[in-house]
């Protein structure tokens, strides 16, 4: 009985979070305050990126300090495809660029998933601190590669002159673009929930809790983790493509280790492994950034204090505080 009540309570909180995120942009639109729509879009996209990381970190226990690589790759996919579509120069093998978001999304998903597969294949041979360091190292390699590649802006980054298009809607309208991001976020959350409850998710979570146990029932933890890591990378890459379209700009900063750290912070703030942890964390983070950032340039100092409190006293993050301990079936 207790179990059912807690599940309902968490679901209720999730529903409130999702509704709030949806309501704010509509209200802002009605009152002619597009800035708040951008803020909500930023929350949705960061939540999407962190939902990707949550698959690896929350379910699999894989503390990737290199997810900025996938975020940035998604961003550069959007930027580079758009640049080629604009200039008309063929991209590779005579293929043209594209201004269509859905094309960009598919390319971002596939490319970041493949890079995730490659990085994961090597990184997952290690564990613990070594895993953290090796994922960081790979991300830094991608970062410096982007910086030293003048064709796409190098250090200065790459502008997307007109936001990419989606059939039938005007993506330049802030509310429309928000809704696109929102729907994708919900789809990603549904994917996360499905995976978490599935056989694959069972094996992935079991590998986090007890690797030896998983091997002893005849499942190879490495394969399970590698698959999880690649899916995780793909989702974060998709978020990167949206982020580039939101800012109409992509730069190496999307690939920097700050970004990787930020994604981890979002998850810890919201609640590691919780379905809506990334959304709660992203909302908290962006609101802090906005509210404290208006008062002081050193808002990250206060964010650090809050993070300390969460880690010391509220290990389950915001959702842990509100919805109680996670249940795992």
């Amino acid at each position: 009985m207790r179990e059912i009540m807690i599940v309902t309570r968490e679901n209720l909180i999730n529903l409130i979070l999702a509704s709030l995120l949806l309501a704010v942009p509509f209200a802002a639109d009605a009152f002619g305050q597009p800035f708040y729509i951008t803020l909500a879009t930023r929350i949705a996209i960061l939540a999407l990126a962190a939902t990707g990381l949550n698959l690896a970190l929350g379910l699999g226990g894989l503390v990737s300090f290199g997810h900025a690589a996938f975020f940035g790759i998604g961003g550069y996919v959007a930027g580079i495809l758009a640049a080629h579509a604009f200039s008309g120069d063929p991209l590779v093998f005579g293929l043209p660029g594209s201004k269509q978001m859905w094309v960009i999304w598919i390319v971002a998903l596939i490319l970041s998933g493949l890079v995730g597969l490659a990085i994961g294949a090597i990184s997952l041979r290690t564990s613990g601190v070594y895993f953290i360091m090796i994922t960081l190292a790979f991300a830094q390699m991608v970062y410096y590669f982007a910086i030293s590649w003048p064709a796409y802006g190098g250090e200065d980054g790459l502008s997307i002159l007109v936001r990419n298009q989606f059939p039938g809607v005007n993506t330049m309208r802030p509310l429309t673009f928000f809704l696109i991001c929102y729907v994708i976020l919900l789809l990603a959350l549904a994917l996360f929930a499905l995976i978490r409850a599935s056989r694959f998710g069972t094996a992935l979570q079991a590998a986090r809790q007890n690797e030896v146990r998983v091997a002893t029932v005849g499942i190879q933890p490495y394969r399970i983790r590698l698959t999880g890591f690649a899916i995780s990378a793909a989702v974060t890459g998709l978020a990167g493509a949206l982020f580039a379209d939101l800012n109409r700009f992509v730069s190496p900063s999307m690939l920097s280790w700050h970004m990787s750290g930020e994604l981890i912070v979002l998850i810890i703030l919201g609640g590691t492994g919780r379905l809506f942890g990334p959304l709660a964390g992203a909302a908290l983070y962006v609101i802090f950034e906005y509210a404290l950032g208006g008062l002081t340039e050193r808002w990250q100092f206060f964010l650090g204090l809050i993070l300390l409190v969460v880690v010391l006293f509220a290990r389950g993050g915001l959702l842990g505080l509100l919805a109680g301990k996670a249940r795992h079936g």
Binding site: F200, T202, A203, Q205, V217, H328
Partner: peptide, 23 residues
């Protein structure tokens, strides 16, 4: 973190074959 049941279910799914079922 898993219940006893889900622990045993892990073994059952391993015995049944694939753990690569996602949905």
């Amino acid at each position: 973190d898993f219940s006893g049941l889900r622990n045993v279910m892990l073994a059952v799914q391993a015995k049944q074959g694939s753990s690569f079922r996602f949905f």
